[in-house]
Simulated scan of single mutants.
Amino acid sequence: MRLRIFTEPQQGADYDTLLAVAKAAEDLGFDAFFRSDHYLKMGDVDGLPGPTDAWITLAGLARETSRIRLGTLMTAATFRHPGPLAISVAQVDRMSGGRVEFGFGAGWYEAEHAAYGIPFPASARERFDRYEEQLDVITGLWSTPVGETFRYEGRHYRLAEGPALPKPMQAPRPPVLIGGTGLKRTPRLAAAHADEYNVPFCSVEDTAAAFGRTRDAVAASGRSEPMVYSAAQVLCCGRNDAEVARRAAAIGREVEELKANGLAGTPDEIVKKIGRFAEIGAERMYLQVLDLSDLDHLELVASEVAPRVG
């Protein structure tokens, strides 16, 4: 089981804070540093100093880290046109020496679109139609051989003999992550496009069911490439009950609720819960860290949890 750090900067974090967390995660041996892609806070927080852009952040981190993998859970298809997005991700992959992983979703948070003047298709069907075309375009641009051009005729996006440059450092492309718990379309898109399928913030039982639907879609598609299965869970670890309670309070959550819906408790409790995800086929856990000032939290997990689940 590989442990990855997952942050939510829209809740209130500047670049320097994210850099400190990413460097700590790298130094402590975590497999990857991921961040969300949102432009508006959620819930009862001030969100100061305001949002940071996911790919600008990752470009900076690409030059200030050396080993750790870097990615998004999940870049919103509604935020960017697919051609420029393919360029941005490819450039950051090169800037990092080939350490980028591209988590990509359809987009869902309507309020942030309104807040920053970003068009938001009213129907989920149209968002997924656009998302599917973007997947075709982005992966098509990356896979087009150097010296050839890429053409695409979709309902929402059309590309005319594009040079399909630059290429990512990783060949044939950075790993693509698709996530969610959709019953039909999400598993089908994952089977067609993804290297990794991620289930966020679900129980072990619901995660197992989602994994099963995607495994069925992979089998039905006839693909031969393996799929990596992963889960994301909020993290709240403490050496004792008092420390767990302190960390839960710091993020505005109740301990029992976190134990039911996340990875919360002592290292022993968290190792046991991660083991349940491993039993259903999860190979990676994304640990959602909400208090980005608490680097001791990362140190505790690195020393007391990671060696027992790796």
Rank of each mutant, 00 (worst) to 15 (best):
V255C: 13
K184Y: 11
E205V: 07
H193N: 14
V228M: 06
V244I: 04
A208V: 08
P166N: 12
R247P: 02
P168E: 05
A210R: 00
A194T: 14
A249N: 15
L177Y: 00
P172S: 09
R239F: 05
E257I: 10
D195F: 02
E205K: 04
D216F: 08
A208N: 07
L165F: 13
R185Y: 11
G252P: 09
A208T: 07
P175L: 10
E196C: 05
A210I: 02
E225C: 13
C237A: 10
A194F: 04
E243V: 05
A210W: 00
D241P: 13
T186C: 04
V228W: 01
N240L: 08
G182V: 00
C236Y: 01
R247C: 06
A219T: 06
R213H: 12
E254D: 15
G222W: 12
C237T: 07
M227C: 08
R215M: 08
A171N: 15
N240V: 11
V234M: 03
N198K: 09
T186Y: 04
D241V: 11
L189N: 03
A242S: 10
V228A: 04
A248N: 03
D195I: 11
I251M: 10
H193K: 14
A248G: 06
G162K: 14
R246P: 03
C237E: 02
G212E: 14
Y197R: 00
V199K: 00
N240M: 09
